[in-house]
């Protein structure tokens, strides 16, 4: 039954709310949560597919150098920006997890309906990477430290470092060696070769073409370390961009009289 009484009040997080307004605020929460989900899926997915998409689309692009370096750097941008609004304005430590959950939802929807159902690619070629472990650690770093800077120094670098091992759990199988036409390739290479992409030939792959010296062959960890460094910077930069875009700025509306509002008074003459 609807409560029409303003006298009935509830206290939420130390603030008194009339019952009816508290009920409405929950409606608001749910509608806005759905809006945020749709908006972040769209914006984050668009951003990610056009900056690191090729590596994420194909199993034979997921190399130890560019994929490992680039993916976390591109992926930390939205968590950084959302952390500002979610934490600074709402004290919600879920900005990063929410962002990557949205991203991965958008990706899988398309891998199924686009890449598989429409373009006939097998799932073994088109699985996306997961960022969830790094995102949880990034969120919890902010929750425990309460500081953007401390989160950048701990969570952001962890976001990059966790990327490769978290994905290795499914990717390793695709790196078994196989002999094809007398050449050694990985299973991933052969999958990419067998299931043709007419307009995306082999040479287009932006992958490690041979390292110079990675001191023991630890290409992926060297890449993670560099990625972690850039992630720390990106996180801070995007926190501030989030702050910039999250500001409430307004300018006078010259058309307001057409909606029955009073004209702004003329500014007083300025004497020179």
């Amino acid at each position: 039954m609807a409560s029409n009484s303003q006298a009935e009040a509830v206290e939420i997080y130390g603030v008194k709310w009339s019952k009816w307004s508290a009920a409405l605020s929950r409606r608001f929460d749910i509608i806005v949560a759905v809006i945020l989900f749709l908006a972040v899926v769209s914006a984050f997915h668009l951003h990610f597919m056009l900056l690191a998409g090729d590596w994420d689309f194909w199993v034979d692009w997921k190399d130890r150098q560019f994929w490992v370096t680039l993916s976390p750097i591109v992926a930390i941008i939205f968590p950084g920006a959302l952390h500002y609004v979610f934490w600074d304005k709402l004290r919600l430590p879920i900005g990063a997890t929410f962002a990557v959950v949205c991203l991965i939802f958008g990706e899988w929807m398309n891998r199924k309906f686009g890449f598989h159902d429409w373009s006939y690619f097998p799932y073994s070629l088109i699985a996306p990477a997961t960022f969830i472990p790094g995102a949880i650690v990034l969120d919890v770093a902010l929750l425990l430290t309460g500081s953007m800077l401390a989160t950048a120094l701990t969570g952001a670098i962890a976001f990059a470092f966790l990327f490769y091992p978290a994905n290795w759990a499914w990717l390793a199988a695709y790196h078994l060696p196989v002999e094809v036409m007398g050449s050694l390739v990985s299973v991933a290479d052969y999958i990419g070769y067998a299931f043709t992409r007419t307009a995306t030939p082999e040479y287009l792959r932006f992958i490690e073409r041979g390292t110079l010296r990675t001191f023991g062959g630890h290409s992926a960890w060297v890449a993670s370390a560099f990625s972690g460094f850039i992630c720390m910077l990106m996180y801070i930069v995007w926190w501030y961009i989030g702050a910039f875009l999250g500001r409430v700025v307004t300018v006078p509306n010259k058309l307001k009289t057409m909606m029955g509002l009073k004209k702004d008074p003329k500014p007083a003459a300025v004497s020179i």
């Binding site: 759905v34 749709l38 769209s42 997915h45 668009l46 398309n110 309906f113 686009g114 307009a199 995306t200």
Partner: peptide, 24 residues
């Protein structure tokens, strides 16, 4: 936001699945 989802995510990545597959 509901309409943006289809443009920004669903059909946008599908654009990759099409154009990387055929000759434009």
């Amino acid at each position: 936001a509901f309409a943006v989802y289809f443009a920004g995510s669903f059909f946008a990545e599908q654009d990759a699945s099409w154009h990387q597959t055929v000759v434009r």
